[in-house]
Nucleic acid binder design. Sequence first.
DNA 1: CGTTAACCCATGTTAACCCATGACAGCCCG
DNA 2: CGGGCTGTCATGGGTTAACATGGGTTAACG
Lengths: 165, 165
Amino acid sequence: MDRFVSTFTNKIDAKGRVSIPASFRAVLERDGYAGGIYCYPSLDAAALDCGGERLAKKIDGLLSGLPDYSDERDELSVALYGDVQILTIDGDGRIVLPESLRAHASLDAAITFVGLGDKFQMWEPQRFEKRRAEARNKVQITRKLFGAGNAITGDGDGGDGGARE
Amino acid sequence: MDRFVSTFTNKIDAKGRVSIPASFRAVLERDGYAGGIYCYPSLDAAALDCGGERLAKKIDGLLSGLPDYSDERDELSVALYGDVQILTIDGDGRIVLPESLRAHASLDAAITFVGLGDKFQMWEPQRFEKRRAEARNKVQITRKLFGAGNAITGDGDGGDGGARE
DNA sequence: CGTTAACCCATGTTAACCCATGACAGCCCG
DNA sequence: CGGGCTGTCATGGGTTAACATGGGTTAACG
């Protein structure tokens, strides 16, 4: 396993701690784990984006495309790095979220961890349910645009001609 | 054998475990088995889609075309990765289905495994029977359109069906 | 000196692991 | 040609380890 996959919902305890799903921790370790995870408010959603070294490198990659000292670069740097927090994972695989991050995603009682391959997100469980439904809808539509669904499921096994549903 | 073929129906035991048909397991092993199978709700049916590494790569392939940090990518990621579960196969070739997946396909007492080449599906047995009947119907019609019935099978008794189970 | 955060230990639940049984099919040998 | 034998496979159950969660304790910092 080398990518974040699947969703898990864990509780926030009285001290504000949450367990990171064990399988995510496993991914982080393979990812050059350096004692903590990178976490910042998603730019376009009420959620938090998190990841390990690979994610950090990706952010660097985005910036490296822009000229030094350009306004764009400065702005993007601030947007990307400015709100990044490094959350340390304790011996039991738990983290504590600073107030500012909690607020952005309206996290209080529980958190839904959503694997997205290279990174994962933290959502307030109910919000995520909504988001997931929307995403599914969109994929349905996208699929139709591709035609017949072959493009997405890619199986092309021909099972398609009536095999499904 | 490197494709999932044929259908099998196995029971879910008291602990929620089901045996994966031995022949499917054999395919998974040739497929770069990494300790578990990828499984997610079918987008267009009350069934679950499952596969091994090959299936996972296909999902990656879809996303790799999209730019990082785009809205599209996030949406698609949520739909594709967010719903995926990794089911670990125990030493006896069995898996346990999480409640969320069971619910999507109304699985409770038994599961019908349906080979579709690159992947396979899990169905509630009765639902699948119904779907299969419909599929047969469609094939009949197609055959008539081709006018192939006699030319090909000769005896034409729909040799297709009876053989299994 | 008080507050916060890191660390350590305890617990229940769930899933992984291990072994036993019974059906069944293929095979060998009489 | 038929009967017994053996290996594969689905299934059931017991045992253990992993993990999420809760709470206490100590160390750091203002």
